[in-house]
């Protein structure tokens, strides 16, 4: 009984799948799916190398500080960094006094409640505070930015495939729409207020090019602030914000794996040794 039932069920599912396949195949031939503009013109992130690439790479503190400077002077006007606190900047090589000063002088103030009146107010951030959000809420963010909400950047490099290369490519990838695109997809002209960028998923980005000219920021360490350099630095900084424990993790990993290799080697010898008499007998 079981086998007859199984045979019928199997015949039904397999048969109907084959019919579905035929229906799909016919449709595929007679009415092939239209190519989309994203499919044709979207580009994978550019190759860019960082000090933290590879299994043993480390963050370059000077680069992270430069990237932080770019974030502070350019990105932070619109983008929040909500999961990072000022105190975390210690990992970038700042000391406590510097962090205190950075927090106190931060352009956006921390929200607070007036202890006397209970009304909403603001105050200077302290190291324990997370980076204050530039907009009170999503509605305010959308209203101020042509209906596009600037996303939080704390986790951006982990929230995109090849995140740091993606950030770098996006920042350096603004260009005018290629003529071939308009020829092949006349309806896909970049709408007013958006900006063509082949590294963005749907090609048209609401964010205006944020890094437009060399020396837009002035690096304290004398590094020449080209657009390329600033893009790399901020991509490195955002890699750190997304994965602040990267170095601890790799260090712990190396120690763990070395230990495990020795332990497993010993376990193998012990295994061979315990089985020696069985193997010999056989």
């Amino acid at each position: 009984m079981v086998r007859i039932g199984a045979f019928l069920v199997g015949l039904f599912f397999a048969g109907w799948l084959l019919i579905s396949f035929l229906v799909g195949a016919v449709a595929y031939v007679t009415d092939p799916p239209a190519k989309t503009v994203e499919h044709e013109f979207h580009q994978a992130p550019k190759h860019v190398s960082f000090s933290f690439d590879g299994p043993f790479g480390k963050y370059d503190r000077a680069q992270l500080q430069r990237g932080f400077q770019v974030f502070k002077e350019v990105c932070s006007a619109c983008h929040s960094l909500h999961y990072v606190a000022f105190r975390d900047l210690k990992a970038l090589g700042y000391n406590e006094a510097e962090i205190k000063a950075i927090a106190k002088q931060w352009a956006i103030k921390a929200p607070d409640v007036d202890p006397k009146t209970g009304e909403m107010s603001t105050r200077d951030p302290v190291p324990a505070d997370y980076f204050p959000k530039p907009f009170a809420n999503n509605v305010a963010a959308a209203a101020a930015n042509n209906n596009a909400i600037p996303p939080d950047l704390s986790l951006m490099t982990k929230a995109r495939h090849h995140g740091n290369a993606y950030i770098y490519s996006l920042l350096t990838g603004y260009q005018s729409q290629p003529a071939e695109l308009l020829k092949a997809f006349p309806d896909s002209k970049t709408p007013e207020g958006l900006h063509y960028n082949p590294y963005f998923a749907n090609l048209n980005l609401a964010m205006a090019p944020p890094l437009t000219a060399d020396d837009q920021v002035t690096y304290g360490d004398g590094t020449k602030a080209t657009v390329d350099q600033m893009s790399q630095d901020v991509a490195a900084f955002l890699t750190w914000t997304a994965e602040p424990k990267l170095e601890n993790r790799r260090r712990a990993g190396l120690a763990t794996i070395i230990f495990l290799l020795i332990a497993t080697g010993l376990a193998y010898m012990s295994y061979q040794n315990i089985w020696a008499d069985k193997k010999k007998a056989a």
Binding site: A6, F13, G15, L17, L18, G24
Partner: peptide, 18 residues
Amino acid sequence: YVMISQIASAYYFAHFLI
């Protein structure tokens, strides 16, 4: 991918049940 998974799914059921 859909067409490939149709063939592959058909074999999956056919394998166990037939």
